[in-house]
Design a protein around this nucleic acid. Sequence first.
DNA 1: TAAACATATGAGCAGATGTTCATATGTTTA
DNA 2: TAAACATATGAACATCTGCTCATATGTTTA
Lengths: 98, 98
Amino acid sequence: MHRELPNEDELYDLAELFKVFGDSTRIRILFELFDEEMNVGDIADKLNMTQSAISHQLKILKQSKLVGNRREGKQIMYFLADDHVRTIIDQGINHIEE
Amino acid sequence: MHRELPNEDELYDLAELFKVFGDSTRIRILFELFDEEMNVGDIADKLNMTQSAISHQLKILKQSKLVGNRREGKQIMYFLADDHVRTIIDQGINHIEE
DNA sequence: TAAACATATGAGCAGATGTTCATATGTTTA
DNA sequence: TAAACATATGAACATCTGCTCATATGTTTA
């Protein structure tokens, strides 16, 4: 495949993106959102972590555009932003499974 | 695509893998190795960093099996271990380019 | 074999990161 | 509108991480 060599900014952004995947709490959150959207409290319960910790991580995931959210009454539902998340994680799994 | 939910160890390994991609020095090194293998000194020169810094990072890349190496006289040549590296980086680029 | 060359490695330090705790913000309900 | 509920946020702290510096290890050459 042909590919332009990224410039400094793009390299930095790329590293920043992977850094977001590089934390097991955030990876766990993404896996929870694979099948269905979820609110903050339910994610926290599922991962057995505090609401605050999850909220902080969701903010990072949102900033990287890996998840989106929408308000539903008192709750805020989070969901995967697009299919890149799945593809990137799949490739990661492929690698470690070898 | 069907997928098993990874267990705790696998989730941890997955995060560890992405953590390796989550540093711009290591990303830069991987890009240098995209087209051809290189020795440590040349990589250091190309990235304008010390031999020691590069060597430390190459060790991490090797431990994650993202690169391999072979001795050639006094030098040690490093190369990409497999195509997952390319695929993962490509997906990352796809994401940030949107 | 001694010197030169190439790379690896350990300790130390400064900056980055994830969690907790307290509290603020925003929405619904009584 | 006050209370209850759900989430967000900032500060503080402990841990982790990447680089530097000094030096060790390994290979070739004179």
